[in-house]
Every structure is written in structure tokens, then in C-alpha cells.
């Protein structure tokens, strides 16, 4: 079942730029410039792109915060802006930099307020809260006012807040931004656990590609408001010819002009005692077998950061 669909979605902003001393010129900038996407129930989609690519703008149009300039958008069969309050009951939203919690109240109070706001039956609310408490270790700071929580604790609170009404789609805008390693892992494994159920559809934007590798089978890359890649991480590697690298340490320097089928020599270091090959065929064994006086080796998987950096530069 298609839960989210966008057809030719656009968002234009008019900005006034200085032109001369007093004059200002109006200019139209497309933050989102014709996006077509559809997302099925249970999918976990990573939505990435450089700063200003239109990630957050898309998310805000999906959640009913921003009105699209053109195109169609539907989430859970609803049109986000005209049916905003109905949609709000079906989705959960975590904006990394905007809190849903009450600053001066204990976390526990925010949760019970949200129960009233979303009109959740008490038993359902209690069951969901119980699950979040155990998965996210909330018990230590449930009675602390939100203003005194650490960023990691607050984010765990935000995640809980977004889930207490049992949404069918969860939108996360940079949920791991500014978190330390431990908190990032806690958030990721929590989301992975949620996604494992297969009911919840999850769309997340991030700059931390480890989030994507850990969580999302599908990766959508946008730049200048357009989709430049939509597929798996592997498809991205294939498309950009990412290759594994073989780093070898040798007892004797590599003879000049050394050629081995299935690999390209990238560089040599330490007077030829260390060499880096890029594997063009899939077997590292053939290369290793052809090398004289091998002492040590390591195999480096292609790095998604490199691929994405290349992608951002080419578009």
C-alpha cells in the first residue's frame, strides 16, 4: 500500500536581494523543484542531500507545515495542509531542532499532556509508554524538567512523544544531530527495532550516513530540490563505480610497472613497500596470489561518505 506519494511537488520561495543602494529585486528560488516519489507502507527511507537541498522543506510539506507551490502530495490518503489536524493523528514528527516537549515540565507531564492532545485511550498510551521506557531507558529522567535534560535524553523523550499516539508514519528530521556516539547508537537501535515490526513507515533526513547504513534499505538523494538518486545503497555504489580497495604491505618494493588483472594500482607508499589497489573484478584472491612477498593485507569496503560526496559534487 502506498502511504506517501508526491507528484511534481514544488515549493518556491521569493527572496529579495539587494540590487543597488535602495532597490531590491525579487527573485524566485525553488527549494523543492518537482519531486516525484512514492513510499510504501513499512518502508524505511533515508532522505539525504547537502545543506539547502530541500530535505526539510519536503518534510514540512509532507507534515502539513508548508503549503506546496505546485504538485500533488498525499500522506496516509490525506492532503497534508487542508487536512492537517486529521493527518497529525496519523503521523509522528521529530524535528531535531524543534521540541515537542514542555520546557518547564517533567518529561512525564509532557507525555500525559500529549495523551490528552491526541486523545489516546489510557491503556494504549500506557502500553506504548512502557515499551519506549524500556527500549530507551527513560526511567532515570522521567521526572526531570525538560530544560534540565541532556540533548541525548531530550531526543529520547522526543522520540517517545512522537510515538505515543501510535502513528503509521514517522518523520524524523536529523534525529541524531549533535548526539554523542552512545546516544546515536541508542536512537538507531531503537528505530531499527521499531522498523523491524514492518508496520511503521519511516522517513528520515540526516547528514550522518551511518544512520542510513544502519536503518534504511532505500536511499533518496536530493540536490537543488530534485531527486538525483532513488534506490538501495548498493545501487548507489554500482552507479558510481565504488570499488573495494586492497591495501598490501610487501617485504620487497613493488616492481615498477607491476600489472595484475582485476585490479588497478592506485598508489604506492614507503618506497613501494605498501601498495593500494582498487579491485575492478570481485575477487581479491587473484590479486593477492599474484603479489610477490606479501606480508600483510587489508580490504577496505567502499565508503558511502565518499560516494555521496562525489554525488553532491557532480550534480
Amino acid at each position: 500500500m502506498t502511504l506517501i506519494s508526491m507528484k511534481g511537488l514544488r515549493k518556491d520561495f521569493t527572496v529579495r536581494v539587494k540590487a543597488g543602494r535602495l532597490r531590491r529585486e525579487k527573485r524566485t528560488v525553488s527549494a523543492v523543484d518537482g519531486i516525484d516519489l512514492s513510499i510504501e507502507q513499512g518502508e524505511m527511507v533515508g532522505y539525504i542531500g547537502p545543506n539547502g537541498a530541500g530535505k526539510s522543506t519536503t518534510l514540512k510539506m509532507l507534515t502539513g507545515v508548508l503549503t506546496p507551490s505546485a504538485g500533488e502530495v498525499s500522506v496516509c490518503g490525506l492532503r497534508p495542509v487542508p487536512q492537517r489536524t486529521r493527518l497529525a493523528l496519523r503521523i509522528g514528527v521529530v524535528f531535531g531542532q524543534r521540541s515537542q516537549l514542555w520546557w518547564d515540565l517533567p518529561l512525564r507531564d509532557s507525555f500525559s499532556l500529549l495523551r490528552h492532545i491526541y486523545r489516546v485511550p489510557p491503556q494504549e498510551h500506557a502500553a506504548r509508554l512502557k515499551r519506549c521506557r524500556s527500549l530507551l531507558d527513560l526511567d532515570d529522567f522521567l521526572d526531570t524538567p525538560v530544560r534540565q535534560l541532556s540533548l541525548g535524553q531530550r531526543m529520547r523523550g522526543e522520540l517517545t512523544a512522537a510515538l505515543l499516539h501510535g502513528p503509521s508514519v514517522l518523520f524524523l528530521d536529523e534525529p541524531t544531530i549533535g548526539l554523542d556516539v552512545v546516544s546515536k547508537q541508542a536512537v538507531r537501535s531503537f528505530l531499527a527495532e521499531l522498523g523491524a515490526g514492518g508496520d511503521l513507515t519511516l522517513v528520515l533526513t540526516t547528514h550522518d550516513l551511518a544512520d542510513i547504513e544502519r536503518l534504511c534499505r532505500r536511499l533518496v538523494v536530493i540536490d537543488h530540490g530534485r531527486v538525483v538518486h532513488d534506490g538501495t545503497i548498493e545501487a548507489l555504489h554500482d552507479r558510481y563505480g565504488s570499488r573495494r580497495r586492497l591495501v598490501v604491505d610487501l617485504d620487497a618494493p613493488l616492481p615498477p610497472g607491476f600489472v595484475v588483472p582485476g585490479a588497478e594500482l592506485l598508489s604506492t607508499e614507503a618506497d613501494g613497500h605498501r601498495a593500494v589497489f582498487e579491485l575492478t573484478s570481485s575477487s581479491a584472491g587473484a590479486v593477492v596470489g599474484a603479489l610477490p612477498a606479501l606480508r600483510d593485507l587489508s580490504l577496505v569496503e567502499p565508503d558511502i561518505e565518499d560516494v555521496v560526496a562525489r554525488l553532491y559534487r557532480t550534480v
Binding site: 489536524t85 497529525a88 493523528l89 524535528f95 531542532q97 524543534r98 491526541y118
Partner: peptide, 13 residues
């Protein structure tokens, strides 16, 4: 500050 975003994603006016 963009805090209105948080207000708009709740099921109330």
C-alpha cells in the same frame, strides 16, 4: 525561530 512547526504538527488548531 520556526517553533510554529511544532505547533502545526499537532492535531489541534
Amino acid at each position: 525561530t520556526g517553533l510554529l512547526d511544532a505547533v502545526l504538527v499537532r492535531p489541534l488548531g
